[in-house]
Amino acid sequence: MTDPLIIAGKSYASRLLIGTGKYRDFAETRAAVEASGAQIVTVAIRRTNIGQNAGEPSLLEALPPSQFTYLPNTAGCYNAEDAVRTLRLARELLDGHDLVKLEVLGDPHTLYPNMPETLKAAGTLVKEGFKVMVYCSDDPIQAQMLEAIGCVAVMPLASLIGSGMGILNPWNLQLVLDKLKVPVIVDAGVGTASDAAIAMELGCDGVLMNTAVAAAKKPVQMARAMKKAVEAGREAFLAGRMPKKLYAASPSSPTEGKISSKAA
């Protein structure tokens, strides 16, 4: 595997992480995940529908944990206690699986992270042996705090969850990238392929998205587009872009040997 994404000592060929929410059905979820090439998929933990789930298909059947790395999340949690409880349940549910996505939300309108509660939950989870990938603000100081606590990946938002507004503050992401050694993964805000490419061109280690794929008119096709965008952005980052120049025009063709009736 060349240029793998390494999280908590495990290598992944794909730098695109996909959420499994908001699809029409499990068949579409499966098709989109396959088209994206993602190896890590996020899932939510919810109360069972008692009495209504007799023959209902399950996500675990559609996306067998033997084929994908599950990343159980704490979506919908507004305090550290609920988030920690949710992930303890996830670990029990998934036979001791300890790679998790922590997100503690601030309010239901913005879904912006509640950073004090996020830091508190991260501390507890790391102590309990979880490998924590953490959704957070793009504040470089708090990102460093999360790294110092022992989180295995730091995942700042690029814009609000589900907004599709793209990379609103590339400068802050740059600050986070400059400061951190653990993988930095843009989580939330990507709307279309170019957004994902921009995140990767900035030097992010990966991109996590759900709505951008699930809410596209053709989710499977968008999943394919995102795969290419993440790969293209990564390669462009590794290749090193040319400097931007307003003038100093430098033609791509030779200046010598032109036919010309007059001197320029």
């Binding site: 499994t20 929410g21 908001k22 899932v43 919810r46 109360r47 069972t48 979506a75």
Partner: peptide, 10 residues
Amino acid sequence: LEIVVAVGGG
């Protein structure tokens, strides 16, 4: 008691 399962989520 809380009884939970994995469901689709982002």
